[in-house]
């Protein structure tokens, strides 16, 4: 391959990752800026975090968002897992093609359209906009992401494990609970995490489908961002980034520990 190409690879990596991380890093750094002017560094301070604590509107919005994310992610995980099982295990039923389409289309559908259609639906059935409607909306979009994650795991699962369970006398339902679900559990958890962050993140669909009293954090951030960049928003964003990073890093570490254990097991197996 030669030295030149390797150098090229290294440069691509450095450039790519700088591009990915520099903006976020700057945002975090400036959340600790003393000055209200976001672009002038005036010394380290946690003043904006203390400010946050007194901002009732933001704290309420954060609380709404957290509840929304927890509820919608959990329901979406159940529904999405069911959909994934339906599509990859109960392969023959009427409407299977329609269901596949309804799972995949929302993944790429512009959010503006999803939001608009859900809002018009809630108006048509006379359902007042509020926490319930935004929760329903988030479940509908997140469940598709969960379904795709779980389905890809189901697809790679060795089918003979389920055949073996049935061969040993387990009914299809018993097989699902004793063999299939325990084996796809990591994918179900990953699906839940994805649904949780999608809900935490969503601005457009929430703007369409929520009502008074249920303003979410992204909506709050959005309305303030439109007025200009403030260190207070930087502080909120930093907290959100910290929460998500801790979650992802923890998940990775747990995963790594499992891999280490597996490596140890394999050594044990080799020794007999």
């Amino acid at each position: 391959m030669g030295w030149r190409l390797t150098k090229f690879n290294l440069v691509s990596l450095i450039f790519g990752f700088t591009f990915l991380y520099l903006p976020i890093t700057l945002l975090v750094v400036y959340s600790f800026n003393e000055s209200r002017l976001v672009t002038v560094w005036a010394g380290f301070s946690t003043v904006w975090y203390r400010e946050l604590w007194h901002n009732r509107g933001l704290i309420d919005a954060a609380w709404v968002t957290l509840r929304l994310a927890l509820i919608s992610a959990s329901v979406a995980t159940v529904l999405g897992t069911m959909a994934a099982i339906a599509l990859s295990r109960y392969t023959r039923f009427r409407g299977r093609t329609l269901m596949t389409g309804m799972i995949y289309a929302p993944l790429v559908m512009p959010e503006v359209i999803t939001g608009l259609s859900l809002l018009l639906f809630f108006v048509a059935i006379n359902l007042d906009r509020g926490f319930l409607t935004v929760t329903l909306a988030h479940i509908s979009t997140s469940m598709c992401f969960v379904a795709v994650v779980v389905q890809s795991r189901l697809r790679s699962l060795d089918r003979s494990l389920e055949d073996a369970a049935m061969d040993l006398g387990a009914t299809p339902t018993a097989t699902l609970f004793h063999v299939t679900l325990p084996l796809i559990w990591p994918a179900v958890i990953a699906g839940w995490m994805l649904a949780f962050t999608l809900s935490l993140d969503d601005l457009v669909i929430a703007s369409f489908t929520t009502g008074p009293g249920s303003t979410t954090l992204p909506m709050k951030i959005y309305s303030q961002v439109r007025l200009g960049v403030t260190p207070e928003i930087n502080a909120v964003c930093t907290i959100l980034i910290a929460i998500v990073s801790v979650g992802v890093v923890a998940a990775t570490l747990i995963n790594r520990r499992r891999m280490v254990r597996q490596a140890r097991d394999e050594r044990l197996a080799a020794e007999g």
Binding site: D158, S160, D163, M166, D167, L168, T171
Partner: peptide, 15 residues
């Protein structure tokens, strides 16, 4: 169905 048959199988992948 397979779960009511008096036969058992040893799978190629062991499963």
């Amino acid at each position: 169905p397979p779960y009511r048959r008096p036969v058992n199988m040893m799978f190629q992948s062991y499963a």
